[in-house]
């Protein structure tokens, strides 16, 4: 049987360093791989700018257009809810802020624990909803691959283990916390090699989209 404190210290220590290293190495490699491909020069006379529309789209694409919302309300709502919830839990929970501060040296105000707790509960439910939707919606079912279910799992685990640890549902606590940290580490390790890269590349993709459309005078 594993020693809970040894396990916690392993997840906080060597395993955390491994996860961070694999994550940083994999993600930076991916980003450099993208940027180094570059774009061919565009000789067509532009109708609009690229930079402004590119940055605009980074923000505007977070909200679905009215038509898409009408045609896929569940998809849009559930996707938005769990993404927002995930980031609130990740970035505004005090212990997470302390962790980020210790690694990156930057910090920001957090939310009261009960708020994060409620948000986490909603996020967990929304993610379960998202999984059911993926299994039942004909399009999503058809286009889903093993990777999609793997990514759902590694995203869900930090949430559920975090919820369990916060509510101290597993004894002893070092085991619960260690499981949560390990789940987050699995997430970090898997990130650069799966569609989770969209956490970073979404900004690039949206920028290009906005720039390509923007150049033609369309606000995308």
């Amino acid at each position: 049987m594993i020693d809970p404190m040894d396990f916690l210290l392993w997840t906080k220590g060597p395993m955390f360093d491994w996860a961070i290293a694999i994550f940083a190495l994999g993600m930076l490699a991916r980003l450099v791989e993208i940027f180094m491909l570059g774009r061919k020069p565009n000789y067509a006379e532009p109708r609009g700018g690229e930079w402004g529309p590119g940055f605009r789209t980074i923000f505007t694409r977070s909200v679905a257009d009215a038509g898409t919302f009408q045609r896929a309300p569940f998809n849009v709502v559930i996707g938005t809810v769990w993404h927002v919830g995930f980031f609130i839990a990740l970035l505004l929970f005090i212990p997470h802020i302390e962790l980020i501060y210790s690694v990156l040296g930057i910090r920001w105000p957090g939310l009261p624990n009960p708020v994060v707790d409620a948000v986490t509960a909603i996020t967990i439910l929304a993610m379960i909803g998202a999984l059911i939707h993926r299994l039942r919606n004909p399009v999503m079912k058809h286009i889903s691959t093993f990777e999609d279910y793997l990514v759902w799992t590694v995203t869900f685990l930090p949430l559920i283990t975090g919820y369990i640890a916060y509510h101290r549902m597993i004894d002893p606590y070092p085991l619960a916390l260690g499981l949560h940290i390990l789940a987050a580490e699995i997430f970090l390790i898997v990130l650069p090699f799966t569609k989770l890269t969209h956490m970073f590349t979404v900004f690039i993709a949206r920028w290009y989209n906005g720039a390509i459309f923007g150049r033609k005078g369309v606000a995308s």
């Binding site: 961070i20 290293a21 940083a24 190495l25 450099v32 180094m36 212990p95 210790s102 990156l104 040296g105």
Partner: peptide, 23 residues
């Protein structure tokens, strides 16, 4: 309690630089 005991910032930096080179 949530803070890792190691020097994760340096790990992040070193791995990031290696990643950029490999990429």
């Amino acid at each position: 309690l949530s803070v890792p005991p190691g020097d994760t910032g340096s790990t992040l930096l070193a791995a990031g630089v290696s990643g950029a080179i490999i990429g």
